Amino acid sequence: MQDFRQPVDLARATRLLNHGPVTLITSAHGGRSNVMAASWAMPLDFVPPKVVVVIDAKTLTRQLVEASGVFGLQLPTRGFARHTLAVGSNAGVEIDKLAALQLETFAAQKIDVPMLEGCIAWFECKVIPDDSQRHDLILAEVVACYADSRVYSNNRWHFGDDHDMRTCHYVAGGTFFETGDTFEVEAAPVDSGKS
């Protein structure tokens, strides 16, 4: 099986998240691992690249991330939407979601967390400690990043005709929409005259 995962320049890693797709977070610590869906994930900074994710303090994922100090952040596709919904609809304390959903994983490069096959972008993240944290926000530095070269290269998404290879956005109640076609424009002229 051919591996389409190619490294992404860390200074450009946040471009993968700019369009706001749903994400999957993987975590592991002390022999336990988990995966959860997260619609609230966004880029925060460029160099070094940082991301913000929302992980409820009462979840197994949060416990594992706080214990290990790391997590994986992945972008699933439309073709992976059924699994994304299942991951987001079941609690990890009740079942081993990776095993129950027969999700294939591979080893991360720089952190000890399983990464998910079936996605098209992957971030390996180290938590930035924040003793004043009173919210469910987790800030992290991206220490490794790679993307599927069939849909991302030269720091740009290039989704083709295979709609199952597009990122998706979660609305609610099992409803998603897929990332649409791209288009380019030139900036409107700016009137430099004083008014």
Rank of each mutant, 00 (worst) to 15 (best):
M1T: 09
M1R: 11
Q2K: 08
Q2A: 13
F4S: 11
R5K: 12
D9R: 07
L10Q: 15
L10P: 11
R15L: 15
L16G: 08
N18Q: 13
N18W: 12
H19L: 08
G20P: 08
V22H: 03
L24Y: 09
L24P: 04
I25K: 09
T26M: 06
T26Y: 06
T26Q: 04
G30E: 15
A37T: 15
A37Y: 03
A37I: 10
A37H: 08
W40L: 02
A41P: 04
P43H: 10
L44D: 05
D45K: 10
D45H: 15
F46M: 11
V47E: 15
V47C: 11
V52Y: 05
A57S: 15
K58W: 12
T59E: 09
T59M: 04
T61E: 04
T61Q: 05
T61W: 09
Q63K: 15
S68F: 04
G69F: 14
G72H: 11
L75K: 06
L75G: 00
T77S: 08
R78E: 08
R78N: 12
R78H: 13
G79M: 05
A81P: 03
R82T: 13
T84P: 02
T84S: 03
V87G: 03
V93Y: 15
V93L: 10
E94R: 15
E94S: 07
I95S: 12
K97C: 05
L98R: 14
A99Y: 08
A100D: 14
L101I: 02
L101H: 05
L101Y: 12
T105K: 01
A108V: 00
Q109T: 14
Q109F: 01
I111A: 02
I111Y: 03
D112Y: 01
V113N: 04
P114S: 00
L116K: 00
E117C: 04
E117S: 07
C119F: 00
C119V: 00
A121N: 01
W122P: 03
W122V: 00
W122C: 02
W122F: 00
F123N: 00
K126A: 02
V127Y: 04
I128G: 09
P129D: 12
D130E: 05
D131L: 06
R134C: 05
R134H: 14
D136I: 04
D136E: 07
I138M: 02
I138G: 06
L139H: 10
L139R: 07
V142N: 00
V143I: 03
A144C: 09
A144T: 04
C145Q: 02
D148I: 02
S149T: 13
N155P: 05
N155L: 00
H158D: 10
F159E: 01
D161K: 06
D162Q: 13
R166A: 06
T167G: 11
T167D: 04
T167H: 06
T167Q: 05
C168W: 10
Y170R: 01
V171Q: 15
V171L: 14
G173L: 13
G173F: 09
G174P: 13
T175N: 12
F177A: 02
E178Y: 10
G180V: 01
V185H: 10
E186D: 06
E186T: 12
A187V: 07
A187F: 03
G193C: 03
S195F: 12
